[in-house]
């Protein structure tokens, strides 16, 4: 209980002395494009928020070398909707419709790097839906995984698990 209170006080004192609560934050993509966002958005991105907290809010320009200027607007859009409490099934369906497989994976990596739980969950579901009814070969290609089973091993494993395979969709090649 005492711990809880003291941690609450900590976060309180940070937010009081934090100049970023009034100023905007600059997110710099891997290809050096600057995106100015409201400080509230940073709260959705745990990685960014902890960066700000660690520097007592003195630094408001945050380099994100792992995220491209192509992906960052999507991330920001999702976080803005999330803050506004406007993430609906319709929004998510529209959001994902714009994205090809590569972009979904890139955004997944970005969400993981920035530690945005909601976006990570959402994209996990998208990836899961896109591979669920595909063949093992398709899944390997999707994730860029090399098959390190010997043909004998794989045949044996398949035999063991044969009864669980039902209704595999034909592979489709994603256009990139």
């Amino acid at each position: 209980m005492a711990e809880e209170v003291s941690s609450q006080m900590n976060s309180l004192s940070i937010s009081e002395t934090n100049p970023s609560s009034s100023a905007t934050i600059s997110l710099v993509s891997g290809d050096d494009i600057v995106f100015k966002v409201e400080p509230t958005i940073a709260k959705e991105m745990e990685t960014v928020q902890s960066f700000i907290d660690e520097t007592d809010g003195k630094i408001t320009t945050i380099p994100l070398p792992n995220i491209s200027s192509h992906d960052l607007p999507y991330v920001i859009e999702y976080c803005e909707k999330s803050i506004a409490g406007k993430i609906t099934k319709e929004f998510e369906a529209e959001f994902v419709k714009k994205l090809n497989n590569e972009e979904v994976k890139e955004l997944f990596l970005a969400a993981n790097y920035l530690n945005i739980k909601k976006l990570l969950d959402f994209l996990s579901q998208v990836i899961a839906d896109r591979i669920a009814n595909k063949s093992v070969e398709y899944v390997r290609r999707y994730f860029g995984i090399e098959n390190d089973f010997t043909p004998e091993e794989e045949a044996k494993l398949r035999e063991e698990l044969a009864w669980t395979f039902t209704g595999v969709d034909p592979d489709d090649e994603d256009e990139n």
Partner: peptide, 28 residues
Amino acid sequence: STLPDPILCHILSFLPTRISVAKMGLVS
């Protein structure tokens, strides 16, 4: 594919368990 196991497992947790076991187990 070089992400740590817990993150890959996170993706699996959105699949029907049968697929996580039977299909994803054959990947590598």
